[in-house]
Every structure is written in structure tokens, then in C-alpha cells.
Design a protein around this nucleic acid. Structure first.
Lengths: 220, 220
DNA sequence: CCTACCGATCGGTAGG
DNA sequence: CCTACCGATCGGTAGG
């Protein structure tokens, strides 16, 4: 009954496998995602599942790509309408916090989990995780640099330092939600972002007049 | 030849199992730590390894306890001689950064990795990980509160917010080292800590006169 | 602390 | 996309 499916059916099956895979891997990790469990959940045979990807590693890479599409839609795209520089950086950070707060991936940020799982295991999966982080850091850094160049952030602000700190805020938030289930954590994350980026003006897209103070070292 | 060992020998075998387990689990995770591999590495039988703990879960809990001893010796203990409050908080943060920089656990912070691995899996291991984080956050918060009470940090400083931010800094550092192998990351982490805690006076234990500015929200 | 074993599950393949 | 199978490995137990 089931062999010889049409191309459209095969693509839809593939999409269903990936959606289920993202859900499993979000909670159990990319290594805890097993072909057998996936097949059981989907009412398919293991060979049927594996046939779409060829190997578990290829499945893991496809799952990462799918999770990347979700992250892009949730966090990158909402910032497209915002003005480049500080305004867009603020929208990116708020979308990022919201994405973690709403638990778009039920097990927390997919990429942070994958980074911890694979940072000690050289190979294509590790490389894919690293390059996704590089792309995201680059995105943040570009807007941070624009904000400094435009005088929206203090001239002495180091964009690399700012991005490092924002990554830390997101990781602390992800951790507080996933391990401690702390409902106050998003508020803490928002306060930290406000301390670095200031509070947006009431009207969307409006240029701020008073840039935030740098988090300087007063004892220097 | 091998049964009927003395109590001392059994304890030494147990310690050897735990040391090897910490090394493996640091790189592969607590779930990737398997009895069979452990037995192979140590030249023992699986039953010989398991006999010391009873189950894999009990082994995982013992490994967490062992890793906790290491963290305590590396990060808590160096701060004992420092004066309570800001001075001790600074020593704790520097010991923490140094512990991550030196890769005391070759796979990065054992507890951050375990948190990501188990935050979605209810059970004793998850509970043990969470309670270790609670203890560490409590330790930091106590000194932060003392620093605020003593006027060493601005009166408006929220100790909970500060601890949240410091946890983020440590996580960003751990991530930058383990995934990106970025040698500049410890410098970034130290700058962030300095921005929040100021720079210590030249002489050890000396009380600072000028507390750091708070990372306020200038747009409020 | 060992040998010898258990059922379950792993990723993957052959052949259709 | 299936059935049927492969060798390897998993956590754990029996019995000594």
C-alpha cells in the first residue's frame, strides 16, 4: 500500500518527519533523537524514515536547518521593518527574549542545547551549529556597529563586547526558564537589555535623543 | 584474582571510576557516560563498575557530587580569605572565570552541560543539578547583598539582577570557549565583571572607596 | 570483582 | 515506503 508515493506526498512525509524530529530533539537532544522512536511516533518503519535522509547525521543536519528556519522567522524577521541600528537591535533582542519566553522550542533554545551537546564532538553537526551562531552574532554585531556609528550608543561602546553580553543574557534567560522554571526571568533579561540599549521611544521607528550610558568601569 | 578486595582498595577503585567518569561525562555528557565504555577504559568488567553504585542513575549522581567537590575547591574556596561583600564577590567571579578559562573540566562547565542535558527530564539527576545551581546562586547573592548593604555597590542595585547577569557572563564565556574556542572571550568576561563590580584596589583585602556606577536605564 | 548471560534498542542494509 | 534482518551496544542480573 505504501511504496511508490508521489513527489508531493514524499515531501509532505519528509516535512512531518522533520517537525516531529525538532520536537523530540528539542527535549531530548539531537543524539537522543533516534530513528526507531521517530518511526514509532510517526507510524512508519525505521527504513522508511531513514530513506528520506540516508543517515542519522544527515537527519541531524536537516533538523538543524529546520530549526534555523523557525529561529529566523521568530527572531530575525520581526526586525526587518525596524530602522537599522539601535532600533533594530532592540527589536531583535525583544524578539529573542520573547522566543525564549514563549518556549517556541519546548526544550528551550535549540541551538544552545545543540552547542553543548556537540561542542566536544568534531564533525559536520558541530560545524553547522557553530556557523549558525557565527551568523547570529554577526547579525547582532552589524546592528550594534551601526548604532555606535550613528551615535545611538556611546562612542566607546565595543560592539563585540555588547554582543557577548547580550548572548550571555539570552543564555541566562534560557537557563532560568528551562532549569528553574523561573517566571521572573524574562523581566530580568529585559532589564539587562534596557540597561545596555535604553528604552525605545513611544512611537515606533522614532530616533532616540538620549543614548544610554555605557556600562563603564568607574574604577579605571 | 580480583574478588575480595579490602575496603581501602574498594574505595580507591571507586575513586578511580569517578575520576574517569567525570572526564568522560565532561566531554560526552552524563548520558553518554556508559558502563561499558567506563569498564573498557578502566580494564574492568561492567559488573565490577556497576557494583560500586548499583545503577547508572546512582553513578550519575555520584559523578555530580564529585564534580561539585572540584567546583567548590576551584571556585568557592579561593574566596574564603577575602573580606565579605564586594571583595569576596570579585574573587568568586575571577575564580569562576579562571575555572572556565583553564578548562578544569575539559568539556567546559560540568553543571551547565548537565543542566542542558537534564532540564527536560524529571528525576533525581535533574533535581541534583538544580539544587547545585540554587546553592551557587545563593552564594553569589549573599555576597552581592552584603556589598549593597555595605555601600560597596550602589544602593539601587538589585542583587538578584546582578547574579542573573553574572550567570549570563559565565555562560557566554563557557560557550565562547567550548564552541568557538575564542581566546579573547575571558578578556570580554573580565571586562563585563569589572563594569558591574569595579576594579579591585591594588592591595588585597583593601576596601574600595569609589563604588561602581549601576548599569542603569538612562531612558527611564 | 569476575564470567556469562538477559531482553531491548541502536544505526543501518538488502531486497523488494 | 515495507519486511526482515545485521552486528554492536545498552543497562542490568545471576551466581560465584
Amino acid at each position: 500500500m505504501s511504496p511508490r508515493k508521489s513527489v508531493a506526498e514524499a515531501l509532505s512525509t519528509r516535512a512531518a518527519i522533520l517537525d516531529r524530529s525538532v520536537a523530540i530533539a528539542s527535549a531530548e537532544g539531537l543524539e537522543g533523537l533516534t530513528i526507531g522512536r521517530l518511526a514509532g511516533d510517526l507510524g512508519m518503519s525505521k527504513a522508511g524514515v531513514l530513506g528520506h535522509f540516508g543517515s542519522k547525521e544527515a537527519l541531524q543536519l536537516a533538523v538543524l536547518a529546520r530549526a534555523g528556519e523557525v529561529f529566523r522567522a521568530e527572531v530575525w524577521e520581526p526586525a526587518i521593518p525596524a530602522a537599522p541600528g539601535l532600533a533594530r537591535l532592540r527589536v531583535l533582542c525583544e524578539a529573542w527574549i520573547s522566543y525564549l519566553e514563549r518556549e517556541v522550542f519546548p526544550g528551550g533554545c535549540f541551538f544552545v542545547a545543540a552547542a553543548h551537546e556537540f561542542d566536544g564532538r568534531p564533525g559536520p553537526v558541530r560545524d553547522a551549529v557553530e556557523s549558525r551562531f557565527d551568523a547570529w552574532r554577526g547579525r547582532l554585531r552589524k546592528e550594534a556597529g551601526r548604532a555606535v556609528d550613528a551615535g545611538e550608543l556611546p562612542e566607546r561602546t565595543d560592539p563585540g563586547q555588547l554582543v557577548f553580553d547580550l548572548l550571555g543574557t539570552a543564555m541566562a534567560l534560557n537557563h532560568a526558564i528551562q532549569l528553574h522554571r523561573d517566571p521572573r526571568a524574562p523581566e530580568l533579561a529585559r532589564r539587562t537589555v534596557q540597561a545596555r540599549l535604553g528604552r525605545p521611544a513611544a512611537a515606533t521607528g522614532q530616533v532616540r535623543r538620549d543614548p544610554p550610558e555605557p556600562a563603564t568601569d568607574p574604577a579605571r
